[in-house]
Structures are given as C-alpha cells and as structure tokens.
Simulated scan of single mutants.
Amino acid sequence: MDDAEIREQLKELEAELARLRASAADIRREIGERWDAPTDAAEIAMVITNAEQQESLIETLEARRERLLQKLGSS
C-alpha cells in the first residue's frame, strides 16, 4: 500500500468517525431528553446498546487510523 492509498483510507476513516461520533452524540442526547426519550425500559436499553455499539465501532476505527498513521510515518 503506497502513501496515496493510506491517505485516502485515512480520509475515509475520518469521515466515518465524524459521522459515527455525531450519531452516537445524538443517541446519547436522545437518552437525556426525557420529553423525546424512549419511555419503556426495553426501548431505553436498546437505545443505550445502540450508542455503546457505535462507540465501540469508533474505538475500532480510531485504532485502525493509528495503524495507518504509523504506516504512513514509517514509509
């Protein structure tokens, strides 16, 4: 993989991270807004699980970004 490919992957990762962070923040905000939040325990649990899954994906993508930055730095 050459530097141009790595930079392109980094660009795509950054865009995906921004989208996921915004989505996770929206979900967390929804949980905190009682007037618009889910009303039963099962729905609240589902929403929290969705936020946690997105946050886990963010961590995975951040780790990938770090590996790509290391590759770019060592080339």
Rank of each mutant, 00 (worst) to 15 (best):
D36V: 00
E59T: 03
P38K: 11
E55G: 07
R19Y: 08
I44K: 14
L20S: 05
G73C: 05
E62Q: 10
L69W: 09
A63Q: 12
E5R: 12
A18I: 06
L10C: 07
R29D: 08
A15S: 01
R65E: 14
R29Y: 02
I6V: 12
T49Q: 13
A51D: 04
I48V: 15
G32R: 00
S75A: 15
R34G: 03
Q54M: 15
M1D: 14
P38F: 05
A37Q: 00
R21A: 02
E66W: 09
N50Q: 12
D36L: 12
D3A: 11
E43G: 04
A22D: 00
E55R: 12
E8N: 06
D26F: 02
E66Y: 13
S23E: 12
E14G: 02
I44S: 09
R64Q: 15
A51F: 08
L69R: 02
A15W: 04
R21L: 02
N50F: 03
E30T: 15
I27T: 13
L20G: 01
M1S: 14
R64G: 06
E43Q: 14
R65N: 04
R7W: 07
R19K: 12
L69C: 05
A41E: 14
A4H: 13
A24Y: 00
R34H: 14
I27A: 11
D3G: 04
E33H: 01
T39I: 10
D3M: 12
A42E: 02
T39V: 11
S74M: 08
E62R: 05
A15T: 06
L72D: 08
K11Q: 12
A45C: 03
I44H: 01
M46G: 05
T49P: 02
A42H: 02
Q70T: 10
A22L: 07
L13V: 07
A45V: 04
I48T: 09
E55I: 09
K11W: 06
Q9M: 13
R34K: 15
D2E: 13
L17C: 06
T49W: 13
S75H: 11
A45R: 13
D2G: 15
V47C: 09
E59Q: 11
A24N: 08
N50S: 07
A24S: 05
R7P: 07
A42T: 12
N50R: 14
P38R: 01
D26E: 11
K11G: 11
S56T: 08
I48N: 07
R67S: 10
L17I: 14
D40P: 01
